[in-house]
Amino acid sequence: MNYTLHQLQVFLKITQTKSITKAAEELHLTQPAVSIQLKNLQDQFEIPLTEVIGRKLFVTDFGKEIALAAENIVNEVHSINYKTLAFKGILSGKLRISVVSTGKYVMPYFLSDFTNNNKGVELDVDVANKLKVIKALKNNEVDFALVSTLPSGIEVESEVLMDNKLFLVANQKTELNNPKRANEFLSNTSLIYREEGSATRIAMESYLNKQGIKARTKLQLTSNEAVKQAVIAGLGVSIMPLIGLKNELENNSITILPSKGLPIITNWTLIWLKGKKMSPAATAYLDFIKKEKESIKNKNFSWIDSF
């Protein structure tokens, strides 16, 4: 057997994604390169690792066994690398964070200085909707999660990073000069929602219910960027987090409409399982956040205070 660590890493990613194309994307390789690595690994076994049925890739039972062994090998290699760095006095290990989708506008600023100053820390960030983020946290698959509302049914500890403000927004041609008429306006306007499970969707629905507003027509989209572009195009209005609208507000492609009870203010909060035994990398990151969060916020997000 002459399989390489790289072949095992590629095969492991294939088993996780169930797709050559997706594996290539996540590994930042070309699709042919991934296919070649899979073939080279397969050539060393008489039993198939994968099979394709109806253009869909399946991992065989034997392949699953090899994938489990590959995962153990890859983890051991990472452990050796981390221990080597630790003996050299360098902070090392993997820092795993799950981020709700709109949090992608926030989290990078609270990571950049830490990762730049700790090159031995491997960063693994997953961006998903709230349901998937909380599931990853419950399953102890991540060290931290970034959310805008605290989850129920799970005991967590938390560190507030900054305010999250949600406003009613429309394109530049839309006018609503009288906030008292906002309910009437919203009852007769197309409303653009995020997908089910999104914290922004939950906040928007809660606001509309409190105001007794029933949507005339709805449009549902699966990302903050998609909602933003739909608003700019004039497909409707939406309640959106301010954090992702800086450029659009500056170039006047989106406007904030006055409305009773808005903005909705929550908090961008870093959470972790209560009682979790943190790795050295996670402990160091939490210490960094507690010390530096105010300066990070003031440096990068002071513009939010003007709204």
Rank of each mutant, 00 (worst) to 15 (best):
D61V: 12
E26M: 11
L219Y: 04
R216W: 10
S279P: 11
A23H: 05
L123C: 05
L235S: 13
F114H: 09
L111T: 13
I232Q: 05
K83I: 04
N298W: 03
N140T: 02
L91E: 04
T60L: 10
K277C: 08
L235D: 08
G234C: 00
M240A: 11
A69M: 15
I239E: 03
P108V: 15
S148R: 01
L168P: 06
D163M: 01
A70G: 01
K293V: 02
L273Y: 03
T4C: 00
D113A: 14
L27D: 03
V156L: 03
F58T: 12
V156K: 01
R96F: 00
S302Q: 12
F45G: 11
S92E: 02
Q44R: 11
W272F: 09
F114C: 09
N188Y: 12
F185A: 09
T115M: 14
A23C: 06
N188E: 15
N171C: 08
L186F: 07
I213K: 11
V231K: 06
L221K: 15
I90P: 04
G63E: 02
P258G: 09
S152A: 13
N267E: 15
S306G: 05
G275K: 04
E51G: 03
E196F: 05
N118G: 10
N117H: 07
L131W: 13
T189S: 09
D61P: 08
T217A: 12
K56D: 13
I97D: 00
D305A: 11
E205H: 12
E65D: 13
A170N: 08
I80E: 10
S92L: 02
G234I: 02
K260A: 10
Y207C: 05
P48G: 05
D124G: 05
Y193E: 10
S190R: 13
M162A: 06
K214A: 09
Q42V: 07
S98H: 07
S98M: 04
K104G: 14
D163H: 03
I243M: 11
N81S: 07
L123M: 04
P179L: 09
S190A: 14
L137N: 03
V34R: 08
Q172P: 00
N188K: 15
E184Q: 15
V160S: 09
F307P: 13
P48I: 08
G244Q: 01
K246W: 06
N252T: 09
T17W: 01
A215E: 13
A182E: 08
L49K: 06
E195S: 11
